[in-house]
Design a protein around this nucleic acid. Structure first.
Lengths: 164, 164
DNA sequence: TTAGATGCAAATGGTTTGCATGCGT
DNA sequence: ACGCATGCAAACCATTTGCATCTAA
């Protein structure tokens, strides 16, 4: 279920100052997370730090709330599902995560917030990142008057090839 | 969201000569719908004909199950929500409709089954068709080995333009 | 006659919320 | 100490399902 690619995309700073600071602390994940949270205006509580660590210390990931709770338990950290959801939503609002709705029944949170899209393998519910550069948008249509594009969600559904 | 992903029992498609025979009855919208249903292997029951008529007689539409039920009531046809869902899923499975999941909380059914994508106006939940020709896919990435592309879902989220 | 369709109500299940308690500053 | 954060359980709610009853063929 989890897909990872690039080793560890470490700091993804949002502001210049934070960027510099994060760069200097690049060796200490705990501090990275604390700063990430602070930069986002989120109080660095025990739970948020734990979740942030699980989320951001292992490269790009696609997780559901339940996935994340299981990981937390595996790390001997007990966090209520409600708090997991709250935190994930807060992280998303803060721009630390990206939400990916699948089939209207599952919601994944993507730690890769760069501009990219996804393959979805039918049946397995596995998401695979597609680098933005791999999709050619020459013909992106004009938005209607008075509106601007807030985001583009692309999901390419894959089926297992019957023959090949 | 919910447990919204298990196809309702699909009756065995009973395609073939029957459709041709029904061709002689063409002429009025009711018959069109009947034929559509027959061609799809769906028995043309009172409810399915009513829904088919509501869905297909007014051009391209984006409807939720509840939308459709309201329209049915407005036409003095009472159909249970369960049957609406079942029918919509059956129509979708038969290729008469296309499902569009939004935000993981709403599911729209699109009567336009041609290859196209959608604008989504944030806040209003209004969907706007984007002709396929308006999006250039030259750069569609290679699917991983052993998989083929089953479909491409593109939703371009729009926000109201604050200034210009 | 009979397989398949419908309606109702109950079940589902991911997600959210209300409220009392806990913890970071 | 103050106020946001957390946990628990109950609430939510779109969607699905079980089952008894109809209906098209």
């Amino acid at each position: 279920m989890v897909s990872r690619k690039s080793p560890a995309t470490l700091p993804k700073p949002r502001r210049g100052v934070a960027a510099a600071a994060l760069g200097m602390l690049a060796g200490c994940p705990f501090h990275d997370v604390r700063m990430k949270l602070c930069a986002a205006g989120l109080r660095p509580t025990r739970q948020r730090i734990a979740l942030g660590w699980l989320l951001f210390a292992k490269g790009d990931r696609h997780l559901t709330a339940e996935n994340l709770q299981e990981e937390a338990q595996a790390s001997r950290v007990s966090i209520s599902l409600a708090t997991i959801y709250n935190s994930l939503n807060q992280f998303t609002q803060a721009g630390l995560l990206r939400e990916i709705a699948i089939d209207g029944s599952r919601t994944y949170f993507d730690t890769n917030i760069s501009d990219h899209h996804h393959f979805l393998v039918e049946g397995t519910n596995v998401l695979i990142d597609i680098p933005r550069v791999a999709v050619d948008y020459d013909g992106l249509p004009q938005p209607p008057a008075g509106k601007s594009i807030a985001g583009v969600d692309v999901i390419i559904r894959l089926r297992n090839n019957p023959s090949a």
